[in-house]
């Protein structure tokens, strides 16, 4: 399972770099989107992958079997920040194309 996720992330990184090194702004944009997906997955996977229970305290589930909440919190904000950065990049691209 870990190998599978690692390979998936690797493939996303490869696809991202491929686009990033291409010509022009759109390649930059698409490459960055793919890389940020890979980065988010990497942080997420670093907490260990669990399929047992989400980090919701219900009084019956043992915390030991819950998914690690800290990487989740980090990735949650990373997704939103990534969105912010991409929106800014889009604005720059628009600005530089519409002259």
């Amino acid at each position: 399972m870990e190998i599978l996720v690692a390979l998936t992330i690797g493939l996303l990184v490869a696809a991202g770099i491929h686009r990033l090194l291409g010509a022009g702004r759109i390649n930059l944009l698409v490459g960055l989107i793919l890389l940020s997906q890979a980065a988010n997955l990497t942080i997420f996977a670093s907490g260990g992958l669990r399929h047992d229970a989400p980090a919701l305290i219900d009084g019956t589930t043992e915390p030991a079997v819950m998914a690690d909440p800290l990487p989740q919190a980090l990735v949650l904000t990373a997704i939103v920040i990534g969105f912010g950065i991409l929106a800014f990049l889009l604005a720059l691209i628009l600005r530089s194309t519409s002259k």
């Binding site: 390979l7 992330i9 690797g10 990184v13 770099i17 090194l21 010509a23 702004r25």
Partner: peptide
């Protein structure tokens, strides 16, 4: 579009992907 694609970018991309995979493992 400005600029041009880097020659051999596929190779670099493959290397990058491999490195990240190993790091994560």
């Amino acid at each position: 579009e400005v600029g041009e694609a880097l020659p051999g970018r596929s190779l670099l991309a493959a290397l990058g992907g491999l490195t990240v995979t190993l790091l994560i493992l």
